[in-house]
Design a protein around this nucleic acid. Structure first.
Lengths: 220, 220
DNA sequence: GAAAAAATTGACCATATGGTCAGGTTTTCA
DNA sequence: TGAAAACCTGACCATATGGTCAATTTTTTC
């Protein structure tokens, strides 16, 4: 019986999930324009008209996929607090981002595609929530720098760098794979990539990695 | 009279240039699927049928644009030689990449879009020329590291990082702009971005930037 | 200056694709 | 159990778009 949103469409709930999953896959590969409702429907295992029953238009599906992704993005934030250890905070953030990239590459790709085309759907999010979040964290980082706890690095640009360094492994997996001589990246590749990014960024911020240059920084 | 390719189509030469320029713009904004021949033609200032006179199909235009871009990409390479100064070589590479990104953002975006969609057209280039180039340079870098001239950084991944760090300013300009509170990036932004990337990477490789900011974290 | 080659163009076509809809089936719930 | 709500689907339509073509004009060349 009801509840917050209880019995409202048991089937709907489930099928919307299936559709979103299928759509993410298709949008990641073909972009918004390239994706077809027919293909999404096929992948979701239902006739096109049924897909249209759940989502009236293609943009609606697309928006839902993006909203779903933004939820993920925003979830894994805070450790950037004035009292935190900079190395700890950065390491954690990088590891989280890399894990997300490895686990949900399609999400990253849909997001990248949206940005690449001028972010027609998520411009508000970028100028709103995201900007505020970065502004907040930047204050903290500037504090760390002023206190001599890390090297002087532009905080805003540091975020751009972190995003770029991590998401490149999903967005441009083809390129990375081609250069490394594989058709796609496996867990070992992601492990190596994470180590590399950690090494580069921590050192770049004047924070030596836990176990210097030789030993893998283990941890998780 | 000829010559290498002399009198062959004076008009053709010129119009193909115009078309390529228009096409780069349109492909950068809409991707391959999203771009329409009509829009390219409009931007090039000629009727669609005339466009088809120069390039039979849309893929042909697209391939030409990509070829044009790869030319640019490959031009600005070498300084990575065994005897070179690592700091010098890296700085030069970063600055060149950033300049290219600032001057030809659309080229970067078309390339990014192609990669994002699995590089159907330039897969051979990636697995061929690019892979070989990176392999070459990686040997040099490993030499530098072995000689203790820079910190131990995975050379292949270093390249991925350099590409990501620089091209992010073109590919995801919308995001960067939104976070910085601008609608698009100006020369000052690019200058700041370049400084940041130089700072982060050089320090990250154990090579202090020329004018040190804090404490030189020694070499290794 | 005329014939040949190159360039130009509007009209037209085939197809793909987003979206609609009327009618049918299943599920829910009093 | 029966009616209302939710769900399903094949057939259909309108439009956008890549591409063709025959006829015409401009440029080159001898």
């Amino acid at each position: 019986m009801s509840g917050s949103r209880g019995r409202v469409g048991r089937i709907r709930q489930q099928h919307e999930g299936t559709i979103l999953k299928a759509a993410e896959h298709v949008f990641a590969r073909s972009g918004f324009q390239g994706a077809t409702m027919a293909e999404i429907a096929l992948r979701a295992g239902m006739p096109k008209s049924n897909l249209h029953y759940y989502f009236g238009t293609k943009v609606e599906v697309y928006r839902a996929v993006l909203a779903h992704i933004l939820e993920l993005w925003l979830a894994e934030t805070d450790r950037f607090t004035p009292d935190a250890d900079p190395r700890e905070a950065l390491s954690h953030y990088i590891e989280a981002k890399m894990r997300l990239t490895a686990e949900r590459p399609d999400a990253s790709r849909v997001f990248a595609n949206e940005l690449l085309h001028g972010a027609p759907e998520i411009g508000d999010y970028l100028r709103g929530a995201l900007r505020a979040l970065v502004a907040d964290k930047s204050v903290v980082i500037r504090g760390w720098i002023a206190a001599g706890r890390m090297a002087a690095v532009d905080p805003e640009h540091l975020f751009f760098s972190l995003w770029a360094l991590t998401q490149t492994y999903a967005d441009f997996e083809t390129q990375v794979g081609a250069v490394l001589g594989r058709s796609n990246l496996g867990p070992a590749d992601y492990r190596r990539a994470t180590d590399h990014v950690l090494n580069l960024v921590l050192r770049g911020c004047g924070l030596m990695p836990p176990a210097a240059i030789e030993e893998p920084p283990c941890s998780t």
